Amino acid sequence: MIRVVIAEDQQLLRGALTSLLRFEEDIEVAAEVPDGNEAWEAIQRHQPDVCVLDIEMPGISGLELAERIRAADLPCKVMIVTTFARPGYLQKAMDARVEGYLLKDEPIDYLIEAIRRVVAGERVISTDLAAALFMREENPLSHREVEMLRLTKKGMTTSEISKALYLTKGTVRNYLSSAIQKLEADSRQQAVQIAEEKGWI
């Protein structure tokens, strides 16, 4: 019996997926949860064979969960489901060594078969997503610029970043200005958004 934990914040999709999986004689849904924090608890409690994770959900994202599972050395296979065919996201998923990376609009039969295939030791990636790997852009940001955008994403101000990193406010502003220029953004918030979509922060 393949034991599965499903983490998906869209209730309709989560409910439909759970209902359909329960028709399969060799699959058992151990838990179905709406966010990353509950998913982490469920994975530790139920020790599933496979977890199906939405890439973007409240609390902990699917990619962050995949990294936690790997860091904790849990045997659970990880499948990410997404509506986004973004090369940066796929690269992050590959770096986290996930076994499956599927688009949400794949037929349900494809997803069910993918669960069986990853349990058998295969890696399954939606065809459209595999093509995105070859369109991956090189990250133009320096390590410091990435750091500045990550802290900005957390809501930190220039003053807070300068204190946290022991840099002058002017230096922080220079790094942020450079990042904004490289990403052809209009503001630091837009720069964060662009970098995040491309999987660079």
Rank of each mutant, 00 (worst) to 15 (best):
R22C: 09
R22I: 00
F23I: 13
F23E: 15
E24W: 07
E24S: 03
E25W: 00
E25Q: 14
E25L: 08
E28Q: 14
V29Q: 08
V29I: 13
A30I: 06
A30V: 06
E32H: 14
P34R: 06
P34T: 04
P34W: 12
D35F: 08
D35L: 10
D35T: 07
D35N: 15
N37P: 00
E38V: 01
E38P: 00
A39C: 03
E41T: 12
A42H: 04
I43Y: 04
R45C: 00
H46Y: 15
H46C: 12
Q47G: 09
Q47F: 08
Q47H: 14
Q47W: 09
P48C: 07
D49E: 15
D49M: 09
D49Q: 13
C51M: 08
V52T: 09
V52I: 15
V52K: 02
D54R: 05
E56G: 07
E56W: 10
M57L: 09
M57Q: 06
G59S: 03
I60L: 05
S61V: 01
S61N: 03
G62E: 05
G62K: 01
G62S: 05
L63D: 05
L63Q: 04
L63R: 01
E64L: 02
E64M: 09
E64T: 04
E64P: 02
E64N: 05
L65H: 00
L65Y: 01
L65E: 02
A66D: 03
E67Y: 05
R68P: 00
A71L: 11
A71F: 10
A72M: 05
L74C: 12
L74G: 11
L74N: 05
P75V: 09
P75G: 09
P75A: 13
P75R: 13
C76W: 01
C76P: 01
K77F: 07
K77V: 06
V78R: 01
V78D: 07
V78Q: 04
M79K: 04
M79W: 07
I80E: 07
I80R: 03
I80F: 01
V81W: 00
T82P: 02
T83C: 12
F84C: 03
A85D: 14
A85R: 12
R86T: 11
P87R: 13
P87N: 10
G88S: 12
G88E: 11
Y89F: 15
Y89C: 04
Y89A: 12
Y89N: 08
Y89D: 14
L90N: 12
Q91D: 13
Q91A: 15
Q91P: 00
K92E: 15
A93W: 03
A93C: 11
D95L: 07
D95H: 10
D95P: 00
A96F: 01
R97G: 02
V98L: 08
V98F: 01
E99M: 10
G100F: 09
G100C: 09
G100Q: 11
G100P: 01
Y101K: 04
Y101P: 04
L102E: 10
L102M: 14
K104G: 10
K104W: 02
K104V: 06
K104C: 06
K104F: 02
P107Q: 07
P107G: 12
I108E: 02
I108S: 02
D109A: 13
Y110M: 06
I112D: 02
